[in-house]
């Protein structure tokens, strides 16, 4: 999902044209752009604004309101750690600390190798089998620190295969 680098503004216009007829189309459009490129590049904002008959400030306002949308590229994998109460009760605070220490980054940062961006998430609906972690589209339960390290190793291996 998170591709890097290659995208064309034409592709963005195609996405917008495919969705703009829908009532309240802005969120579906933003999702589609982010799914396609991995983030919503600043340079697409004037194009979205023009197509949707909105001001740039309005489009920017919507993007910045939602935690899910981002305007900067991420690492190859997005690792989200659940910070909500049910996961807290089974050790997610310690897991969060472990993740930050071993990856050497804080939330919203990317490892130097470019493989992982760390994000907080507030509940993945997996609250009876926490601590829960989401990596891209996959959700993992009962994630111990050891299991976390294994999952991260997979992220890094996957990176090596790509490059």
């Amino acid at each position: 999902m998170t591709t890097s680098g290659q995208w064309r503004m034409e592709g963005v216009r195609d996405i917008i044209h495919g969705l703009k007829h829908k009532p309240g189309a802005l969120l579906p459009i933003l999702h589609a752009i982010q799914d396609h490129i991995g983030y919503i590049p600043e340079s697409t904002i004037p194009v979205i604004a023009e197509e949707m008959l909105l001001t740039r400030a309005e489009v920017h306002g919507v993007i910045s309101f939602y935690h899910h949308f981002r305007t900067h590229p991420t690492g190859r994998h997005i690792v989200e750690i659940c910070r909500a109460e049910a996961c807290q009760s089974v050790g997610s605070r310690a897991l969060e600390k472990h993740a930050k220490t071993t990856l050497g980054i804080d939330f919203a940062e990317t490892t130097a190798c470019g493989s992982v961006t760390l994000e907080p998430v507030y509940c993945l609906g997996n609250c009876a089998t926490g601590p829960s972690v989401r990596i891209d589209a996959n959700i993992y339960g009962k994630v111990s620190t050891t299991r976390f390290d294994e999952l991260i190793a997979d992220c890094r291996d996957a990176m090596r295969e790509v490059s």
């Binding site: 309240g24 969120l27 579906p28 933003l30 999702h31 309101f65 939602y66 935690h67 899910h68 949308f69 998430v121 507030y122």
Partner: peptide, 8 residues
Amino acid sequence: VRLGAGAY
């Protein structure tokens, strides 16, 4: 179906 975007 419409997707939210991470806002409680």
